[in-house]
Design a protein around this nucleic acid. Structure first.
Lengths: 151, 151
DNA sequence: TTTGAAAGTTAGACAAT
DNA sequence: ATTGTCTAACTTTCAAA
């Protein structure tokens, strides 16, 4: 991860579909060099993929919530099982397994509040391992699109 | 958003760097048609961008946490100001403005626990509007890479 | 809207440095 | 590791259906 790698990672986070030539020109290196670098970053697992980002509203899912869930018993099996269950559901965008008061934080997006309620009642509260949960409506969500090394 | 648009959005979330020809072949349409569709989705704001995803560990940021922050007063100005402050900091990956007990949930990634502590003490607890916060270490974070319409 | 064909551009491989 | 060159593949435009 020298300066060049850092710049490539930054640029491809900004726009993953720019051409290799364009990227090379930005960095002031030959396209073939650039291609080699990008391949290296991909192979070393620094770059893990290339994804289109979408507008949840356009997909008919304007209502987002964060669910703080407590489960018991706190065994590896139960945690993995519940996590696996969560990620199978289309409503779920993101699952955080956390320390502290809560065990899971689950980011969901649905069509409306009724569907959120239905999700909580029909898919969550019925689970044996779920002993408690709170749901918080998300008013705004901002994600930084370029992640860099620190310092 | 007909069936074709849905498929394009799905495919480009899976792999944003596949060629237009490849995508067209998958969908069974002509490349020129495919290009037109993709442009449409981009212009209509359904697809908001194309981003490389990165491995936080490779960027030297293996320690993640979720910070639940309460701020006062809860005015639009203070909320926007605090949010703007958060997103300027490289440690911050994501900011959720939420209803309920907490006002903000902040996803951060840093190099080690010392730096997490330093962040909390030096950048967060000093702020006038922050009346309380809890930090939870994230053991695991799984994000679904393909977001679809529901039902 | 969708398409095929044409023209211009790019990706990817490779030998040389 | 980086580069220029080469060929095959690709993108993009546009006239026609």
């Amino acid at each position: 991860m020298d300066e060049l790698d850092t710049a490539i990672v930054r640029e491809l986070q900004r726009d993953a579909r720019q051409t290799n030539r364009e990227l090379a020109r930005t960095l002031g290196i030959a396209p073939s060099t650039c291609l080699e670098r990008v391949r290296g970053l991909r192979n070393r697992g620094v770059i893990t993929g290339y994804r289109a980002t979408v507008d949840l509203r356009s997909l008919g899912r304007p209502v987002q919530a964060l669910l703080a869930v407590r489960i018991r018993p706190l065994s590896r099996e139960v945690i993995e099982g519940f996590k696996a269950y969560l990620v199978t559901m289309d409503e779920v965008l993101s699952v955080y397994v956390v320390a502290g008061g809560d065990d899971f934080l689950v980011h969901v997006a649905v069509g409306d509040v009724d569907r959120l309620h239905a999700f909580l009642m029909d898919r969550l509260s019925g689970r044996k391992e779920v002993v408690d949960f709170r749901s918080s409506i998300i008013y705004q969500h901002v994600a930084s699109d370029v992640i860099t090394e620190l310092d």
